[in-house]
């Protein structure tokens, strides 16, 4: 089974080499592709020099468009599993392997890694958890299914989901919205427990002002998805 790791990169010159080397050495059975989202630093040069497998966007598309390029690449090259991994050290290699096993064994369309099954590791702030449980409730209202961690970045796609994402993927904050999209198409989604670490460097892309936009945008996106 061909498995792909999608690494979106925007101005990651300092970390991209370590990220890719880490994935090459630890992720057995996985191929990878770096999606350079028109970085203005040396990210593409470093990838070319090291002969990393890279798709380089000529125009900056933002995270959604970059990740979608990864899914198009996965679709066109016959991958049956694809997972997005960012370079910020939040994703643990061990869990990705475990998710792949779970997906293959149970013939699922998507596996989500959830922090809130065993409640181990980094649990996010109280305010964020309120937001997360709100989305869990909203998704249950729309689909009847329970996703305990709808904002989790651990999301592994099977072939059908790869094809869906290659065709249609949100421009930003895709996690809860795509969960609804997939569930409403009757695909099989399961969660397995993961332990998340607090990010090692940088800040979350979702700041205080942006969380208001996040809540409204994702809520609307889910409700519109419900109407389709």
């Amino acid at each position: 089974m061909k498995k792909l790791i999608i690494i979106p990169a925007y101005n990651e010159a300092e970390s991209i080499e370590a990220t890719v080397r880490g994935i090459q050495s630890k992720m057995h059975g996985f191929d990878y592709v770096v999606i350079n989202d028109c970085s203005t630093d040396e990210t593409p040069d470093i990838c070319r020099k090291n002969n990393f497998n890279m798709v380089s966007l000529p125009v900056n598309l933002g995270i959604g468009g970059a990740v979608q390029t990864g899914y198009i690449y996965a679709r066109d090259n016959g991958y049956e599993i694809a997972v997005q991994m960012d370079g910020d050290g939040q994703h643990d290699v061990e869990f990705v392997q475990r998710m792949a096993e779970h997906l293959e064994k149970n013939k699922l369309d998507m596996v989500i890694g959830s922090r809130f099954i065993t409640h181990e590791g980094f649990q996010s702030s109280r305010l964020r958890r309120v937001g997360i449980s709100y989305f869990t409730w909203l998704i249950r209202m729309c689909t009847g299914k329970t996703i305990t961690d709808p904002t989790s970045g651990y999301r592994m796609a099977g072939r059908r989901v790869i094809e869906l994402f290659a065709q249609d993927y949100p421009k930003d904050y895709p996690e809860p919205e795509t969960a609804v999209k997939i569930l409403r198409r009757g695909m099989n989604v399961e969660e397995i427990p993961v332990v998340m670490r607090e990010r090692q460097g940088g800040v979350s892309s979702i700041s205080m002002t942006k969380s208001v936009y996040y809540m409204i945008k994702v809520t609307l996106a889910i409700l519109i998805e419900r109407l389709r």
Partner: peptide, 21 residues
Amino acid sequence: RIKALTQQVALLEKQVRDEAV
């Protein structure tokens, strides 16, 4: 439209680069 074009161009550029190598 620009998004779709950008993605196609990038994927084609990769194929060309790989062939050249």
